[in-house]
Design a protein around this nucleic acid. Structure first.
Lengths: 187, 187
DNA sequence: GTCTATAGAGTGATAGAC
DNA sequence: GTCTATCACTCTATAGAC
């Protein structure tokens, strides 16, 4: 029986949705079990460290996605302008106009922060630094400050979009950033 | 005994700290009892609706503070420039350079949002509208968009400051906003 | 007596760990 | 599935104010 080849690697995206929806504390093993279709026994086989290890795996998975799809292109692409524009496309698709929250940002406000402080710090530091590098390549003088502001603005737009129940806020933010970050000339 | 005249009105600030620190789910009655020095009996006398009513009272308290100290001045002060500058002073003091989170913003990302959606929406709508009104009085053409962006930026700066463990991010954001929102001339 | 406030034992349900 | 701890919450008992 049971020829459903579930692997540990398949789980983080499913777990992520549970943590996004209910937060770290609110994500009970019962909900996780339901979302994954796995019994508690199986979950503890995959993640002996329990809930904390599950959340850590999710954060690592999210971090890896951003590293591959956002941070690395920002750092490495020859054409800085298209790299920045590509970041905005990826971010817009990933956060679905603010309907999907940033798990790392939510954990930063939560007391889950105490458990995962270094991962959370690393994620945002990589993002700001990668964007600053691209902006610098594009010839912006205020690259570091502008990068910090852009990442703040994206995080804040997720908060505001959800609070207002209006995806327009997020969409306007992305459009505004596209203009400001890829402006040809600038002080 | 027990001549400690505790009133219901004294509790929201104490409760707020517990919810800020642990989130809605993580704020257990045991923690709340410890933080307030009150037994469960007293807590349920003050808040028959239990934890949900406690959180609602906290949100109402926060909302009232912002209404009095931030939103109303933005709407009513004759001098729009000093009203905006006053908002930034109040926000900077309230959030303590990002060391203190915005409970309403945190709840917006949490699943506490489903319970308090209208209060959360109202808070941010009031903030954006009041700031837009002040910016319009100051003669800004893009008042609504600028207000939305400013509030997003403040929320995002709280996330980023905490994530990076660096109050500098929040401080730079406030300084940048002071410049941008009170610029004499502008398109 | 009534009312409000207190502390805390006790409830069933459910948590995460194993 | 089984474990214990803890959850939100109820309830009893008690106190002083009026």
């Amino acid at each position: 029986m049971s020829r459903k080849p579930v692997e540990r690697g398949d789980l983080p995206p499913l777990l992520a949705e549970v943590f996004r929806k209910h937060g770290y504390e609110g994500a009970s093993l019962a909900l996780i079990s339901e979302a994954t279709g796995l019994g508690k026994g199986s979950l503890y086989n995959f993640f002996p460290g329990g809930k904390e290890e599950m959340a850590a795996a999710v954060l690592a998975d999210v971090d890896a996605w951003f590293e591959g799809n956002v941070f690395a292109p920002l750092r490495d692409k020859a054409d800085a302008e298209t790299a920045i524009s590509g970041m905005l496309d990826a971010v817009d698709a990933y956060f679905r106009s603010g309907r999907r929250i940033c798990l790392v940002g939510a954990f930063a406000l939560d007391d889950a922060r105490s458990r995962f402080a270094e991962r959370i710090r690393g994620y945002f530091a990589s993002w700001v630094d990668a964007l600053a590098a691209a902006l610098a390549r594009a010839g912006r003088k205020d690259a570091a400050a502008l990068a910090e502001e852009a990442v703040s603005l994206i995080q804040g737009a997720i908060v505001l979009s959800r609070a207002l129940g209006d995806t327009g806020t997020f969409d306007r933010t992305i459009r505004g950033l596209r203009k400001r970050l890829t402006a040809r000339r600038q002080a």
